[in-house]
């Protein structure tokens, strides 16, 4: 989207200047390392935005698309919730009770499988909409 990467890059430049001051003044490896990480992360974010859309680096307001962009938007995602709980369960298990690590790993695999089905259903819905077909029954009814 037009202009989205400009403030990100501008901010990365400001950070780079301050990081250079830090490197010259302190010469501390840890400080340069963590500051360098932050600058690199922000530059990578800007690069990703430009890669996704070249106009992200051009000034001006976003224009209305000539053809409306259709987007499949989920109302619910149990897969996302389960994946988060799985991750928490693994870390909690490391601290508290090891069986939770296995439980979390199993839950993570299940949730990723469910996520794949959700994404597949979303793509199918979008394609149907673009073809002009009537919407099919909701994904929840089709999933096992």
């Amino acid at each position: 989207m037009r202009g989205g990467a400009i403030p990100v890059l501008a901010w990365a430049c400001l950070l780079a200047v301050l990081m250079t001051g830090n490197a010259v003044w302190t010469g501390d490896a840890i400080q340069i390392g963590e500051y360098g990480f932050a600058v690199l992360t922000i530059v990578l974010v800007a690069a990703a935005l430009v890669r996704a859309d070249r106009t992200a680096i051009r000034r001006g307001a976003p224009e209305a698309p000539s053809r409306p962009r259709v987007e499949a938007s989920p109302d619910l995602s149990f897969a996302a919730v389960l994946a988060a709980i799985a991750l928490a369960s693994i870390l909690f298990g490391l601290t508290w009770a090891y069986f939770l690590v296995y439980f979390g790993a199993g839950l993570l695999i299940m949730s990723l499988g469910r996520l794949a089905l959700e994404l597949q259903a979303a793509r199918a819905s979008r394609e149907r909409f673009e073809r002009g077909s009537p919407p099919e029954r909701p994904e929840r009814e089709r999933l096992p």
Partner: peptide
């Protein structure tokens, strides 16, 4: 017009606690 119209809902809504817990509405 919003930036991303139109959008297609792909999962039916659920109300109550489950709906609130798993909603992807920002």
């Amino acid at each position: 017009m919003s930036a991303t119209a139109p959008s297609v809902s792909t999962v039916s809504r659920a109300s109550g606690l489950f709906g609130a817990a798993a909603s992807t509405d920002h």
